[in-house]
Design a protein around this nucleic acid. Structure first.
Lengths: 204, 204
DNA sequence: ATGCTCATGTAACCAGTTACATGATTTG
DNA sequence: CAAATCATGTAACTGGTTACATGAGCAT
């Protein structure tokens, strides 16, 4: 009765993560998007400005936004944490550029993140889409795993909400409002499930 | 072709707002929630600690979270901007308390915010729920207005998404992904609409 | 001469979270 | 006596946004 319809919390996903090494704090989806774009490049090398364009022109730029300032900041951060290595490429007549490469750690981190479903319905709209996009380009099998597990998460969630709605509550104003909140969450969860079912990865 | 499925932007609602006076920047939903709680009190006066409890124990605390530090910060902000007035109430044996009252400006601001639907589907989960809850307690007619207009917003949105999906696109990988994104948004929008239709305010 | 593309950033700012400070008084 | 309640905050930190700085070459 205490944990019925819990409040929105911004820093969620900390307790649900498997936390095997607890290396760093949660990264923004944009950071993984950068890792993914680096992984995508044929040569394995790419510099910031190119990343910026790939981001803005590609599908990722239509899901999340990433200003150049933040992009270079994330590249530094990823390099500092050992997920990419960066070397300077001298150019004549043009400014020098830094080319970045994924490390083994970076590749592992990216694949782990891609394969893990998001916990809440709200995160479907951003995180999950980025994961799906990257999974498809990095390794289509990851996409199948991701979609399968995400469907499972959403089904569990829908079941829990249904169960909560089934248990009768005292009928005051707050409770009826709370029921509305639960029904909203349930419809949104079901909508997400329906959508997941239409993805090509759902043919299994 | 350029503005098909636009990116997620955090600072949205600025350009869509009617901007009549442009008094202050966008406020957090929690600030309006505080205004609403102050408006709810019978005497018209309430102090921070009571607000904190009302918040945590009531339905609002299950939708959004508000730490005491931020609560007092918002109260100062609202007082500074002239939406509430605060006076100190001396107590013997207890710490002095500050009791807060809505000003005419504050009341107007609250009602304006409550009556205005949210622009995006994403905001349904937080902002809209807070608006609905406050509308019901402050003035049930506001709730009818809000729900009616919100349904209209969602219908327009659904129509636009449907239209975008109808226009055929070149069939590359990015486009098919983009179509999935559009379909996700459409299902989520429709789910929100279905839920809105189940609210008592939708009987008109 | 003007401004655009390349290429990488810095600086200032703002919002929010977490944790703690204070100090009396009542309750177990 | 310890702990919770009352009541209001402060301080440090995190992270993200916006805007601008730099400076060469190239196209109009």
């Amino acid at each position: 009765m205490t944990d019925e319809w819990q409040p929105h919390t911004e820093t969620e996903g900390v307790e649900t993560s498997p936390a095997p090494s607890r290396k760093g704090p949660e990264r923004a989806a944009a950071e993984y998007a950068l890792l993914g774009l680096i992984a995508q490049t044929g040569s394995g090398e790419i510099h910031g400005y190119d990343l910026s364009r790939s981001f803005a022109e590609g599908a990722l730029g239509r899901i999340i936004r990433l200003e150049s300032g933040m992009l270079y900041h994330y590249l530094k951060k990823l390099a500092r944490d050992g997920y990419i290595t960066s070397r300077i490429e001298r150019q004549s007549g043009r400014p020098d550029r830094q080319v970045h490469t994924l490390t083994a750690d970076g590749d592992a981190l990216l694949r782990m993140w891609i394969a893990a479903p998001v916990r809440s319905t709200r995160e479907i709209r951003l995180e999950f889409l980025v994961k799906l996009y990257l999974a498809r380009t990095v390794d289509p099998r990851h996409a199948v795993t991701l979609v399968t597990e995400q469907r499972s998460v959403m089904r569990t969630r829908a079941a829990r909400l249904t169960e909560q709605l089934a248990t009768p509550q005292p009928a005051d104003a707050d409770t009826s409002f709370g029921e509305s909140v639960l029904r909203l969450r349930l419809t949104q969860t079901r909508a997400a499930l329906d959508w997941l079912d239409t993805l090509p990865e759902s043919r299994n």
